[in-house]
Amino acid sequence: MDAIWNELKLMQGLLAAAVLNGLIGWQRERHGHNAGLRTHILVGVSAALFIVLSETLVSTFAKQDDQVRFDLIGVLGAVVSGVSFLGAGAIFSSKRGEGTKELTTAAGLLATAAVGLACGLHLYVLASGATLLFWLTLGTLSRLPARPYSQSVGEQR
């Protein structure tokens, strides 16, 4: 029975990741972007699950044998690499001839993974603060008028 309670306690991080990343995904979906609510929740909860599984492996097997080594930093790197690959696919699959598109989507997926990792580590205040910053960035800053790239480059000369 203790094992079930321990696993339910670990679910806190996954549930927090679902809620916080759902906010980011909802904002993206509300504005008609390709990666929306479901994608952001899946990426964030997956990242949280990877870190929870890694911590569980360490706490379970590190005590059994001194020769077993674990690299939690490697897990973080693997999550970042995997999500970056997903983001690159979003950029690559965007329409040709229109310049680079979907950079914000790729960055949003990476941000979502970071929030998920923080939730998996039970750093809920940090994850909430980061979500608020991401949400404000995606919402408020998107309303600012954009300057064409050629004008901003020309003004610097």
Rank of each mutant, 00 (worst) to 15 (best):
A114G: 13
L14I: 13
L15I: 15
A78K: 08
I91T: 04
R157N: 13
A48M: 04
G82W: 04
G108P: 00
V75E: 00
L117V: 15
A106S: 10
I51K: 03
A35Y: 03
T104Q: 03
F50Y: 11
Q67K: 14
F70N: 04
A130T: 15
R143D: 06
P148K: 15
F134W: 11
L86D: 01
G77E: 13
S152F: 11
A90F: 09
A107S: 12
W26I: 07
T39I: 09
K101W: 05
G99M: 07
D71N: 13
G99R: 08
T137Y: 06
V75D: 02
N34T: 15
P145T: 12
G120D: 09
L117W: 02
T60A: 08
V83T: 01
A16E: 03
W135Y: 15
V75G: 00
P145Q: 12
N34K: 11
T137A: 13
Y124S: 01
L72T: 14
G116C: 10
Q151W: 08
W26E: 09
Y124R: 06
L141M: 15
G116P: 03
Q67G: 12
H40L: 10
G82Y: 04
A18D: 01
A146S: 14
L76V: 13
G116K: 03
W135E: 03
V75M: 02
F134C: 14
L132D: 07
F134A: 13
A90W: 00
H122D: 13
L138Q: 10
G129R: 10
G32M: 08
D71S: 06
L110H: 10
L109E: 06
S142L: 01
V68C: 01
G116T: 06
G13M: 03
L57H: 05
F85Q: 05
R69D: 06
V19C: 06
G139P: 00
G89C: 09
F61S: 02
T131L: 07
L110R: 01
L126N: 09
Y124A: 06
A18N: 07
W26K: 06
Q67D: 14
I91C: 06
A106W: 01
L53Y: 07
T104K: 07
V45T: 14
Y149S: 12
K63P: 02
G25D: 06
